[in-house]
């Protein structure tokens, strides 16, 4: 476990907590894509099935349970408790455009043709594109609340730190998980445009709005 990995996990957790706090305190999930949150819940569910079969460490188990809990709570907030505030009109990304290719690819390109491995691979591929409905929603409405941009920033930071973690692990442990690395690079690229807007607008105290 290296410092990039720990900081990456902390950023990931922070992103999820920021999102939950935003919804909780404003009693509203306006501007949040429920579809992205459903995809993230699906990502964690299919990836963490190994909670039942394989013990790695206390840290690993506890974090997985926290991630699952945060993710399902967020989905419940959007489609249950605060569904009146959910902007379903603008959350119009077609999920089948992501789910069909991701499912196909996870059957074609995996480490082992076993149900658990295919589901793990599915979760890795799906995570790399799961934020697209959220980014699509922002580009459609042309703006995002500042707190939503903080959420996206920490999510992107988590991805970037994981890249550093993999470089570190490659040099120190000769560890190289090709599926995770390639998907991780793709996923991080999706955040680049957003990072630019975050630094040039949000950090200077302006609201993120697109021309």
């Amino acid at each position: 476990m290296n410092v990039f990995r720990i900081l990456g996990d902390v950023s990931h957790l922070l992103a999820m907590i920021i999102l939950l706090l935003k919804i909780w305190r404003s009693k509203s999930c306006a501007g949040i894509s429920g579809k992205s949150q459903i995809l993230f819940a699906l990502v964690f569910t299919t990836r963490y099935l190994d909670l039942l079969t394989n013990f790695i460490s206390i840290y690993n188990t506890v974090m997985k349970i926290i991630f699952l809990a945060c993710s399902y709570t967020t989905v419940y907030m959007i489609y249950g408790k605060y569904r009146n505030t959910f902007d379903s009109e603008n959350d119009s990304f077609r999920l089948e455009f992501l789910l069909v290719p991701v499912t196909g690819l996870s059957f074609l390109e995996n480490y082992n043709f076993t149900p658990l491995e295919i589901l793990w691979t599915f979760s890795i591929y799906l995570e790399s594109v799961a934020i697209l409905p959220q980014l699509f929603m922002i580009s459609k409405t042309g703006e995002a609340e500042t707190i939503t941009t903080h959420y996206l920033f920490f999510l992107g930071l988590y991805r970037t730190l994981y890249l550093a973690n993999w470089i570190w692990r490659y040099h120190t442990e000769s560890f190289y998980d090709q599926i995770a690395v390639v998907s991780g690079v793709v996923q991080t690229i999706f955040y680049c445009d957003f990072f630019y807007l975050y630094v040039t607008k949000v950090l200077k105290g302006k609201k993120l709005s697109l021309p």
Binding site: R5, D9, H12, R47, D50, N54, I56, S57, N60, M63, K64, F67, Y111, N112, W120, Y162, N165, F175, Y176, D177, A180
Partner: peptide, 10 residues
């Protein structure tokens, strides 16, 4: 190659 002992990352 295949990661040993399952996947240890989150």
């Amino acid at each position: 190659q295949e990661p040993k002992e399952g996947h240890d990352e989150l």
